[in-house]
């Protein structure tokens, strides 16, 4: 059996203290990304359940799987949900969604809920893309850019490195700090070229951890460059899979001279959460019209 070092764990959660049947609005969001899919269910505007899974080969099934898994053990079925918004790369392929909204708008809205209305700049580092968003106090987007063309600065880029060094993706952050001195960043931005550069460093006798540190540094620097196009305004927050990689996060905070806001929520669900918030608002708008 080959070990897939880059595979992360899938999970689901729901709040045992909430009785969803007692709620009047059941809204949900489903974020189908190219690598992972998340589903979020809210009861009367409060977070109730969510899931995070790897995206399968087709979007509609992934969306269905993610939502069913979020609802697992809750006694709810998809039909019970009042309004669902699909978002992410596969947003138009969420079969049970009432509307599709871009991941940019959903992320901003999700972050506004997670971090509070003071958040102005959001960096989302996903599996195959990197988004930088600025928003107002209501979570409405004022400026954004997205990079899904190039693997540098995405989770996929980090996976390539974890794979090259046979390191589990979850351990990258800690290992990268286990170095005597901080190395210069890997000079190539392109993941393919950076990989050959890293192979060269290993050949020169660099320990794995030092190579990881050099790559985390390069990734942090790249993301900072991306943010600079937008201009970073406080408060600042980081979401997405890489938010869990302290090897990149701490280094980029240092370069920016800013610390990301902390949240009690799981930052990987920001997009799906925003979609669920849009869903709640759209449902109420729809009801008001009736």
């Amino acid at each position: 059996m080959t070990v897939e070092y880059w595979r992360w764990k899938e999970y689901n959660w729901h709040d045992e203290n909430i009785d969803p049947k007692a709620g009047s609005v059941l809204s949900a969001g489903c974020d189908v990304g190219s690598v992972s899919s998340q589903a979020v269910v809210m009861v009367d505007g409060g977070l109730y359940a969510y899931s995070n899974m790897r995206t399968g080969s087709d979007s509609p099934h992934s969306a269905l799987d993610a939502m069913n898994w979020a609802l697992e053990g809750t006694g709810l079925k998809i039909e019970d949900l009042h309004y669902v918004v699909g978002t992410g790369y596969g947003r138009v392929n969420v079969p049970f969604a009432h509307r599709a909204i871009t991941e940019i708008a959903c992320h901003a809205r999700g972050a506004n809920f997670m971090y509070g209305p003071s958040v102005r700049t959001i960096l989302d580092m996903g599996g195959q893309d990197c988004k930088a968003i600025r928003c107002d106090h209501r979570g409405k987007v004022t400026n954004f850019l997205m990079n899904d063309k190039c693997a540098a600065g995405t989770g996929r880029g980090m996976e390539v490195f974890a794979d090259l060094l046979s390191v589990s993706i979850e351990d990258v952050g800690d290992l990268s700090f286990d170095v005597e001195e901080e190395p210069e960043p890997v000079s190539s931005t392109c993941v393919v070229f950076a990989k050959s550069e890293a192979a060269g460093l290993l050949r020169q006798g660099w320990p794995k951890n030092l190579v990881l540190a050099a790559y985390c540094n390069a990734m942090a620097h790249r993301v900072v460059t991306l943010l600079e196009r937008l201009g970073v305004e406080k408060e600042f927050a980081i979401t997405g899979g890489i938010a869990k990689n302290i090897g990149v996060v701490r280094r980029l905070e240092k370069e920016l001279g800013l610390t990301g806001l902390k949240s009690d929520y799981d930052t990987q669900i920001a997009g799906a959460l925003g979609a669920a918030l849009f869903a709640g608002a759209l449902y109420e708008k729809q009801q008001a019209k009736k």
Partner: peptide, 13 residues
């Protein structure tokens, strides 16, 4: 809203 479409890769922005 300021919308930036495109990307940054190794060769530039």
């Amino acid at each position: 809203m300021i919308a930036n479409y495109g990307y940054m890769d190794g060769s530039g922005e």
